[in-house]
Amino acid sequence: MGLAKRIIPCLDVDAGRVVKGINFINIRDAGDPVEIAQRYDEQGADELAFLDITASSDARDTLIHVVEEVASQVFIPLTVGGGIRQMTDIRRLLNAGADKVSINTAAVFNPDFVNQASEHFGSQCIVVAIDAKQTQIDPPRWEVFTHGGRKRTGLDALEWAHNMVKRGAGELLLTSMDRDGTRNGFDLTLTRTLSEAVNVPVIASGGVGNLQHLVDGILLGKADAVLAASIFHFGEYTIQQAKAAMAAQGIEVRL
């Protein structure tokens, strides 16, 4: 028996509430983050991810309180992302009880930030989030987008992944912007291409609509962990059900 594949429920947080957007536009309220985090912890989630989807600095303070409260009640790893631009942002989140931070836009504008952050805080707590969209079919090419999928950067996602790992990213959180919110499953070609190319763990994200999608992300997408939001928030499936489905198809999970 070796390392278990991880299931990571993601909580998109806006002004202290968990929400989930469909293609990042229609936002639905899904509840209190602390309650939801506790529920996932009880169900056996392997980690939790918080994504702050508001941009204002007031909302950021709200998020710090949410992280503090969750971290004093839930003892599994917490990754927090959204709007992290400076070393002090990382310091504040880690002090609030986050274990890892995920950096997205700031890495694109200033790749050296990833070097600085990983040198100072250690690679183990620096996750680089890559939002990728397919821009060419044959041969397939994916580009990195920022601002919730609205801004194209021109960066090739695969090259970018290598660059980020070289600069000290300890893990990559890969979201397909074509699939996010669609419930049609992960972009498995993107996931596999990227996961096989780098030596750090890759978390697949974007598009989960049923449990088979999670299984496919591991078996076909070769992801090290799978992230999902809406299938868990609205009580459609529990984490136990997800793990049972994975275990039934031969995936090693923590039961």
Binding site: A4, D46, Q124
Partner: peptide, 12 residues
């Protein structure tokens, strides 16, 4: 399957 380094996650 190739294993990643760091080992990150739940092991026995």
């Amino acid at each position: 399957q190739r294993l990643k380094v760091p080992q990150m996650g739940w092991s026995q």
